[in-house]
Design a protein around this nucleic acid. Sequence first.
DNA 1: AAAGCCTATATTGTCGACAATAATTGACAA
DNA 2: TTGTCAATTATTGTCGACAATATAGGCTTT
Lengths: 221, 221
Amino acid sequence: MMNSLSEQAITGADKTFFQLRNDIVESNILAGSKLSEVELSTKYSVSRAVVREAINRLESCHLVERKANVGARVVSLTAQGLVQLYQVRESLEGMAARLAAKNMTDHEILDLKDLLNNHFREVEGTETYYQEAGDVDFHYRIILGSKNDHLISLLVNGMYHLIRMYRVQLGMVGPRVSTAFEEHKNIVQAISNRDEELAEILMRRHITYSMKNIENRLKNQ
Amino acid sequence: MMNSLSEQAITGADKTFFQLRNDIVESNILAGSKLSEVELSTKYSVSRAVVREAINRLESCHLVERKANVGARVVSLTAQGLVQLYQVRESLEGMAARLAAKNMTDHEILDLKDLLNNHFREVEGTETYYQEAGDVDFHYRIILGSKNDHLISLLVNGMYHLIRMYRVQLGMVGPRVSTAFEEHKNIVQAISNRDEELAEILMRRHITYSMKNIENRLKNQ
DNA sequence: AAAGCCTATATTGTCGACAATAATTGACAA
DNA sequence: TTGTCAATTATTGTCGACAATATAGGCTTT
């Protein structure tokens, strides 16, 4: 499946940024560990300057924290941090759903329904492999559908990868697939009806449920 | 009055970042203009490296836009951009008010009431000079009161200065002071009652009204 | 005259070296 | 033994030079 979020690197700093970001999200570089500029520059075969630029961008995504004259560390994952992250996500994606109900074209809404149907077929069959990709695509389309550049930038460039980092490293795969699918369906219906108020409410609930589900999972492991 | 948002520069890149940010917000550097690295490095008497780092940080705040191998430009202010900015602000500060109602200490709420009273006295007298500072302080305290680091970072480090840039350059000073004061009072009351739902709704309305007021002002000038 | 190409110029991207600051180690004294 | 201070080491911050890319202007060609 083609990744909707594919970005292409132009400069060396881009490549280093993408590699580093991936290594952090996939925990090839451990959460909480220190990022040595010289070490990384030898590892990725680039100068310290491009490593510094890459680290700066990672800081913008809240994936690393820098202290002046000390250095950068990968963020630590905490239950509290996850809750705070999801509170912001609830707020922003709620607004995204509201705006999507207002601004998506009829054609885009039809495409969204298609996506949902494909997702449904995958869930029905045994191919549960792509359930997360499907979920990501769903949320991604609604975010883009808001047509609000600030919102898109904050979510896609800013928060998405940190959310993914929590997902990957805390090992949240399923289930909640079928219930989540129902929620997705209702959200699309609200958007299709151009019911901004309901779209926002349902999206916020959807994210809240998802959060609660994760919290329970964390307690029982 | 002491600025609640005072930050202290440690490194040279910090200083350059703060100066540049201020020059952009106050329109000493015009919106939409190109930022030449060599020009700025001579202007601020630092190397290109620190200018580049400063520009990178400005990009994180959405105050400039960079294109690879081309350079950075100060963002252009548009009516559409302002609307989108306020949509995000409504969403995030609404959540901030909700969380503030949940997480602020009784003491912090008392301080907030004090602030409001001082603000009221200033409005009653002829000293309308600080009305904006008062408004900023009010919103700032509620944002901090959310106790959500992500939210605080997004609003204070990220969006605040862009909002201020619009305010300064589109010349929005008053009035709407007394009506805004009433709205502030009601928000504080909701927070004091620990009514999260109402606090969020009132904050969102408050920001929506403010937006509409700005839109009208733009039409009539 | 218009379009396309090529050269010249300016700007950004990258690099390695040096300076300034923080962390570490070891010696010394209480 | 432990705490403090000093010197050493390592890491980040800053700089100027070079390489790669984009822009501008003139030239050629149709």
